[in-house]
Structures are given as C-alpha cells and as structure tokens.
Design a binder for these strands. Structure first.
Length: 582
DNA sequence: GCCGTTTTCGGCCCGACTGTTTTCAGTCG
C-alpha cells in the first residue's frame, strides 16, 4: 500500500524545515532565520508525539523554536504535504544550489558564486568544471580551492554514510594507541559523538592536553592509517582514514583539559545551552575555560581543569556524556535531579546470545566461560528457531540435546547459570515458529521478526503485539528491525507495541548489536514512562561480541534509563521472579 | 524567526583553519 502522501510525518516535516533553512541561507537572508528553522526541525525530530496530534490540540507552540511562521509551515505540511514558504523559496533559489551545498567545503557563498558564473547545478558538472580549470576563474577561487573541491567530490562518492559505533571506536582506538606510542601523552581522550555513544558517527574527535602541540600534530598526520590530510594547524588538524572516516585532533594546554573535553564532547546544542547559562551570569565559556566576561584575555579562569569543576561553577551536577543532547539534561542538572543512570557494572547477565549451533561462531561452553569471566551470574543462549532457514535453526532433537548440554555445563559452572532460551521467529502470519509445548521447555523465549518486513503497518503491529501477548514469550527482540545505514525499520506502531508490553509484562529488548541499537534511544523514555520493562542484550554471535553489552547499556543511558528499568541488572532469581508471566 | 531572572526589541555561542588575502570572508564543528 503506498504511503498516504498528504500527511507528512514528523521526520518528513523536519526534513522540509531543514531544506527551508538551506534555501534561506542560499538566498542570503538573515542567517538567524535559517538557524531557527534548523532548530525547529531538530525539536520535531525529538518529539515523541505525531505533529497531527499536536495541531489538533492546538499545542504546536509548545515545541521549542516553533512560533507563528514555523507553525504555519508545519500546519500546511501536515495538512497538504506542501508549504507556501518552501515553494516560494524553491522558486526563488535554483534547486541545483542545494546539491552544491552538499559538497564539503562549499558553503552558501561559494555555491552561489559557482551558480551565478557557471550555471552549475549538479555534482557531475561541478567536477567537470573543476577538472577543466573553469572554477579558478571565479573570484576568490584559485587552484587550491579547485583541488579541494575535486577531493571532496571523490570522498563524497567513496563515502558510504555514517560509521557504526564499533567501526568508529576501532578507528579512534587505533589512533589513540599510535599517539600514545609516539608522544607518550597522558592527557588524551575520545570526545564528540563517539563519547556520547550516538548510534552512528560522522567524525571522530580526539582531544589532547599538552603545552607542546607541534610534535603531537606531526605524529597525528603521519599515522599509518592516514589517507589524506584535510587540515594541519598549530592546535587543530583533521585527517581522513579508511572508508572516508574523518578524525579531528585538538591540542589544548593541560590547564584547559576539562573545558576542552566538555567543549569537544558536545553536543553542539548542549554547548549552546551551557554558554547561554554562562552568559546570563556574565561568564564566558569556551574550549579553554570559564571566565568572567572580559577576564579571558588575562587568563584568569574560574574553572577549566575538569568538567566537574565547570558544571559546578554553573551550579550544576556533572552530566554524563550520553545525556548531553539538550533534551532536558541541563535543567535537570541545575535542579540536581539527574537520574542515576544504569551502568555496565550493574548488568548481571546477558539474555540474547547465539552459538555455533545456529549462526554463531563459538560453542556454548566458550560463550559461558567468557560470560562468567565477565562477572555475570547468568547467560541466556537463544539460538534461532528452524523457520529461519539460513541460520540453521534448532530442530526439536537439537533443542533436546541443547538442554542436556546446558545441564551438564551448569553442574560444572555453578553457581553461574546457563539459561536455555530461543530467539523464536514471529512468522509472517503472526504464528510463532515453535509449538507451545516446545516453547514451554525453554527458560527464556525472545521473539523477533526476521522476514516479511514490508507488511502494512496494521498487519505488522498486529503480528508483533500478538507475539507480545503470547503467554510463553518473555521478551521482544530488536523491536523496529532497523539495520543502521542499511535497512529502514519496518512500519510498526511502536506506541501500541510498548503499551502491550507494559500490559502483559513482556520485556522489550535494547539490542546492543552496533547495526541495531534497537529499541532506539529516543523511544526508551516513552517505554519507561508507560511502565514497560526493558532488557539490555548483546545479541553476541561470538565471545568478543559479548562486549556489545556496553553499547546496549550506552543506548539505555542515552534513553535516561536507571538500573530499575532494566530487568537484567537483577541477579538470577530476582530477574526471573520479576517476570509477570508464568 | 524566535524569545525574555538584563530585554516585547535587539540580540542570537565561539573559535580555528584555509585560501586568498594586505586584514578578512567562508566554512566547519
């Protein structure tokens, strides 16, 4: 069934508002107008209610940065799929300019100049003009700029999108190890979206604290993984490593370490809030420290050595990086009302893992020994059901053998406990992939969708809610089915899924697989508020992937989850007893 | 275009690097 074209959903509206912002910049209007449209787009992406609902209840003005003009555009977009302001701008600005804006290094002014002089509107034309040496005939463009534009286009074509968390972490850790080896530096840390555990990573940010920056910069740009140097300054450099991933390094004096870490961790929106608060107190906050306005030139900082010191000087509690998204954490920290977030150390066991009996790589005993070594009290092994042909799902005979294998290992490893579970497929027709008498033999049953992803919303929702209501199902795995940077989520009414989970006591998984991170962090507060219980799982297919639990916990933290919201922070008996189902 | 414990008008975070410049605009994060 084709999507109803007339009713733009929140993401689609946000997309148009972003485009309006781009067009305003290209048109050369007051930049703050563009800033406002972008800020409004972001607020809308953070909303957990449909815009149509807010319009109906006349609550649009409650959205930050939405006033009369933006509100009118939103109403038009939701009602008709179009906005007069947007269409006027499209008529006034050649649409090709938006394409040029997508090339890194080309901003509104350059895009405008290129179009005005050469009438270029596509990347291909831009590339050809650069190769022909026509760009350098424009004012303020010489060969260097031309070369950079060509390099940017090449990188753009090579680039596959944002990096997954584990890929970005690997690239960052390799660079950190290199810098430590070459410089012996102690003050060295990952900042940016990677430190905040955002689900995908654009650039990797690294901060170093030292009074002697040049040797550090030199080591950075000659690192073996570097493929291209984008910028190489006294205190700031940028490089590209494999697959077009960018790494930025900033060196600050050690006394500014805390201010720099805070600044480069972001998010940008969080920083803007902090600076606004600082300004109201006649203070200036930058990457070097917190100063009384006017005193920064004299180097008389109030605070800057640690993040804690800076937050304290602004009369706030220290805010965990995962919360720094300007989603209420600044106010909560000012009221000293931040939640005590769940931490990796709170996790007592993993409830979703696979072995080499289906699509995993390691045997059960190896997985169990690693889980035990990690300090867990229990490990649920949840190999697939047979319906998923490609994963060699367990037949009834093999389920029997698995139970025997686990019993023998449990005798050996006690008090550590292996729970024999299954990741049972929810078939296209909503039926589970094992009969009830087989499901009843498992300690844990987690249900998931692995096929027929394109079912209509109503059908998909009924299919999943049906599984949640099944009395033998203890959890729902990766509720949206998305694969980051690879596959969109299936169309499902998550609010209905959460409501059914809360009602029945079936748990909702936060899957730590770096491609999934599903339930997404933005839905976690809603699940908690509605009384659903969550579990954090690694979905490990090998022993080293048990470490993906950290990503599941980070996602939970980004969703403001406390230990109480996560079932597997409890020891085995309490975890099993907290299940509402028999 | 939005917003208000300085303000209903006049601000809106702040600084580094690059390239093309004799002092700065453009871009980025």
């Amino acid at each position: 069934m084709p999507r109803e074209a007339l009713h733009l959903d929140n993401d689609a509206v946000a997309h148009v508002l972003d485009e309006i912002a781009d067009l305003l910049e290209l048109k050369g209007e007051n930049v703050f107008r563009a800033v406002t449209y972008r800020a409004a787009a972001r607020s809308i992406r953070d909303l957990r209610e449909p815009l149509a609902e807010l319009i109906e209840q006349k609550r649009l003005k409650e959205i930050p940065k939405v006033g009369p003009s933006v509100g009118e555009a939103i109403e038009q977009l939701v009602a008709t799929g179009r906005s007069i302001r947007h269409e006027e701008l499209q008529a006034a600005v050649p649409t090709g300019l938006l394409t040029l804006l997508g090339v890194p290094g080309v901003g509104p002014a350059t895009a405008r100049a290129i179009y005005d002089h050469l009438r270029i509107t596509t990347i291909d034309e831009l590339e050809q003009a650069a190769k022909d040496g026509r760009l350098r005939q424009l004012p303020k463009i010489q060969t260097k700029t031309e070369e950079n534009i060509l390099k940017s286009i090449a990188a753009l074509r090579q680039r596959t999108g944002r990096a997954l968390l584990n890929e970005a972490r690997a690239a960052a850790n390799t660079m950190l190890a290199w810098l430590r080896q070459e410089t012996g530096l102690e003050l060295l840390a990952i900042a940016g979206s990677l430190r905040r555990f955002r689900e995908t990573i654009g650039d990797v940010d690294i901060v170093a604290g030292s009074d002697d920056a040049p040797p550090i910069m030199a080591a950075f740009v000659r690192a073996p993984t570097v493929e291209r140097i984008l910028a190489n300054g006294d205190t700031k450099s940028s490089v590209l490593v494999a697959r077009g991933m960018q790494i930025d390094l900033r060196v600050v004096p050690p006394r500014s370490w805390g201010a720099a870490l805070l600044y480069f961790t972001g998010s940008k929106e969080h920083n803007v809030r902090l600076r606004g608060i600082a300004l109201k107190r006649k203070l200036l906050l930058n990457e070097y420290g917190l100063y009384r306005v006017g005193a920064e030139a004299r180097g008389q900082e109030l605070a800057c050595a640690s993040e804690e010191e800076i937050y304290a000087a602004l009369e706030m509690d220290w805010i965990p990086p995962e919360l720094r998204e300007d989603r209420g954490e600044v106010d909560a920290a000012s009221r000293h009302a931040l939640p005590a977030l769940v931490a990796v150390g709170d996790i007592r066991g993993d409830l979703h893992t696979h072995t080499n009996w289906t699509d995993g790589r390691d045997p059960l005993e190896t997985m169990a020994l690693r889980a035990k070594a990690k300090g867990y009290g229990y490990l649920a092994v949840t190999d697939h059901s047979p319906g998923l042909g490609m994963t060699n799902g367990l037949s009834l005979e093999r389920v029997q053998a698995r139970l025997a294998e686990a019993a023998a290992l449990n005798a050996k490893l006690a008090p550590f406990r292996i729970l024999v579970g299954t990741e049972v497929d929810i078939r296209a027709n909503g039926k589970l992939d094992y009969p009830d008498d087989v499901l009843a033999r498992f300690d844990i049953v987690t249900a998931s969708v692995h096929s027929s992803f394109s079912q209509p919303r109503d059908q998909m929702t009924a299919r999943i809610v049906g599984a949640i209501r099944h009395p033998l199902v203890t959890a729902l795995s990766h509720p949206t089915g998305r694969l980051l940077e690879r596959r969109e989520p299936y169309d499902v009414d998550l609010a209905a899924v959460i409501a059914a989970a809360a009602e029945t006591g079936t748990r909702i998984e936060i899957n730590g697989g770096p491609e999934r991170l599903d339930l997404p962090d933005t839905w976690i507060p809603r699940a908690i508020a509605n009384g659903a219980t969550l579990v954090a799982s690694s979905d490990a297919h090998a022993i080293e992937e048990l470490e993906w639990m950290e990503l599941a916990v980070a996602t939970a933290r980004r969703g403001w989850a406390t230990p109480g919201a996560i079932a597997n922070t409890r020891d085995l008996d309490a975890m099993l007893a907290s299940r509402k189902k028999a």
